[in-house]
Each structure stands twice: as structure tokens, then as C-alpha cells.
Amino acid sequence: MKKEIPLLIGFIATIGWYLEFFMAGKFFENWKMIFTTGFRNVAIVGLLVGMVNVLRVNYKKIKYNNDRWYSVYQMFIIALMVFFGSLRGISPGTPFDAMFTYGFVPLDATVFSLLAFYVASASYRSFKIKSVESAFLLVAAILIMLSKMPLGEAMWSKIPVIGEWIMDGPTSAGKRAILFGAYLGGLTMMIRVAFGLERSHLSE
């Protein structure tokens, strides 16, 4: 029964969810709301489990690891944000918001901005015309980039038109093919889960 009941739940949920998409009506709407509420409750518990796990992992690091100061710093910041958030809320003007605006925002943006430097360096090292295909790729990439900056249009008024054609034609066709394959794969997976052929979600 330890296997059969989860499989049965999987079957009912998958088929019900699938039918609901195509069939309107109160019965299926209520059916969906049961799951919506269920998901929400599970997600809230999941957040709690995540929080406990962060505390557990960092506690162990502080106790046994040489790099304990990173964990001490992380725990301190978490505690501080929870404290300020609970004390005065998170609306603009509160200490929590100040920590977000002057701490999190610049740090978060900085980490992502590093991408620009890595992309430039990687382009220099790797973006080379080694074959006909890579030549097409390079030319298309440069045209798209030019079409998405004002300088491209200033150089030649047709650049945005060419960029648009590349995206509407070849790019879009490729993307559609990938999507089509991915959705067929998703449909197959749904059928496999529904009929118990796929059991990875049951830790098998």
C-alpha cells in the first residue's frame, strides 16, 4: 500500500488536472481550488523547512568549520532582517527597507553586472569564425545587437528591419521547434506519471 496509494493519488491528480484544462464547470473548478489551497499550504511549510535548514547548516558550520565567520555573518544578517521586519514592517522608510535599499539592491545588482565583464571576455576568447555555421551565428548576433542599439539605426536605417527579420524568421522558427519538442516531452511525462511508469517523484 505504501506504493499503491501515492500512485493512485498521482493518477487522480494528473488526470483530473488534465481534464480540468479542457472542461469547464463548477466540479472541475472546485477540484482545482482544493489543489491550489493544498499547494499554498505545502509551500508555506516548505518555506519554514527551508528556514530551519539554513539555521541547521549554519549552526553546524559555526560549531565545526574553520570558515565559521561567513556563517556568523549570514546568521547575523538574517536575524537582523527578521528582527527589523517583525518590529516595524517592510514598507518604505523602515529599517528593513533601508537594509534592502542600501544593502541588498547594490549587492544584488553588482553580482549580476559582473556578467557584462565575463561576456566580453568570453566573446574575445571564444566567438571565432571556425566554420560556416559559426560565421552565420556571428553575423546574426552582431546584426541583432546593432538593431537593439540606437547606433545601429544611425549607421543604416535598415538595420532594425534586418534584426526584426532575423528574430521573426529564423530565430522564431528555431524557438518554435524547441518548444514543440519540449511540450511533447511534457505531455509524455504526464502520461508516464499518471500511469505509474515514471516514479522518480516517489524516490524510486
Binding site: 566580453a120 566573446s123 569564425i129 542599439m149
Partner: peptide
């Protein structure tokens, strides 16, 4: 940010060109 967008892309094109020069 438009001027910054232009110049950073020009630098990028320059490096792509130089990388290909070395390769060829």
C-alpha cells in the same frame, strides 16, 4: 543609458574582431 549601451557594444565588437584576427 543609451550612450553607454552603444559604447559598450562597440568595445565588445572590437574584442570579437581582435579575437578573430588572432585566430585567422
Amino acid at each position: 543609458g543609451m550612450a553607454s549601451l552603444n559604447l559598450s557594444h562597440i568595445i565588445m565588437f572590437l574584442f570579437i574582431g581582435l579575437g578573430n584576427l588572432v585566430y585567422f
